[in-house]
């Protein structure tokens, strides 16, 4: 069976890796290339590069660094940010990325999911979902790259998960916004709720603070992977140490 995946997420803004608290106040944490190489060497199972400014400012992600990443790392990686068409995706995949992740553009044009899946196969198509609890309901937000543009879509998260799967999404990254950047642990309640209707792999995102949070997300939910950013960027958690710890807890991990 598949091992549980540890996935560092590199939020990219203006060509640098940044990290914000609850989607704002971004600070620069380092160069894309150096961090990618470091996580690759430490045993990350996969990397996600998320160009957080791109969708917001109507630009698309610059492709040059994708090629450089493909040249230096030997694990899969996914690129997200402002991918609005087949040709945007093709350029990124041809440059060496394994998957593209779409979020706001999928909400604006759900058929894009189907088009991407038909063209490249479902395994290339990841849907990022930013979800937050509101009046006891989980609701999808769009344009979350910048607090000025953030928008409540009034779509319930479980409905959107059903829809993206039926359109051909191959994986879902569920970012639980109440937890993002605050390092209080993954949102296990929401993850379990959403996993009920999920036939494709679901990656937990938002809230990792301690190594025990990873243990919890893998033992208390059926998430396929756990994504985190700041704990890795700030060296609060070192990936190979985390993986040894999880392996000792009898979790199926690749070391």
């Amino acid at each position: 069976m598949l091992t549980k995946r540890i996935i560092p997420c590199l939020d990219v803004k203006n060509g640098q890796v940044v990290k914000g608290i609850k989607f704002k106040d971004h600070e620069v944490v380092g160069s894309i290339i150096e961090l990618a190489k470091k996580y690759n060497d430490e045993g990350a199972d996969e990397l996600v590069f998320y160009d957080i400014g791109a969708s917001t400012y109507d630009g698309i992600v610059s492709k040059d660094w994708v090629k450089i990443i493909a040249e230096i790392i030997n694990i899969p990686f996914c690129v997200a940010g402002g991918i609005k068409s087949i040709s945007d995706a093709k350029q990124i995949l041809n440059n060496g990325a394994d998957k593209v992740s779409i979020n706001t553009p999928a909400l604006e044009n759900p058929d894009l999911i189907k088009e991407l899946a038909n063209e490249f196969g479902s395994q290339c198509v990841v849907i990022g979902i930013d979800s937050m609890i509101e009046n006891n309901k989980y609701i999808v937000y769009s344009n979350t790259g910048d607090e000025k543009t953030i928008k409540n879509t009034h779509i319930e998260t479980n409905e959107w998960i059903d829809r993206v799967q039926s359109l051909g999404a191959g994986e879902i990254v569920l970012n639980c916004m109440n937890q993002d950047g605050v390092r209080n642990g993954y949102d296990l309640v929401q993850l379990n709720e959403m996993l009920k209707n999920c036939d494709v792999p679901l990656i937990a995102s938002g809230g990792a603070g301690r190594i025990e949070d990873f243990q919890d997300v893998f033992t208390k939910t059926k998430s396929s992977g756990a994504l985190a950013a700041s704990v890795f960027h700030k060296n609060l958690i070192i990936i190979n140490e985390l993986k040894e710890f999880l392996l000792n807890q009898s979790i199926n991990i690749r070391v």
Partner: peptide, 8 residues
């Protein structure tokens, strides 16, 4: 889960 995605 289908597709199979990850390390086996």
């Amino acid at each position: 889960n289908v597709p199979q995605m990850g390390w086996n």
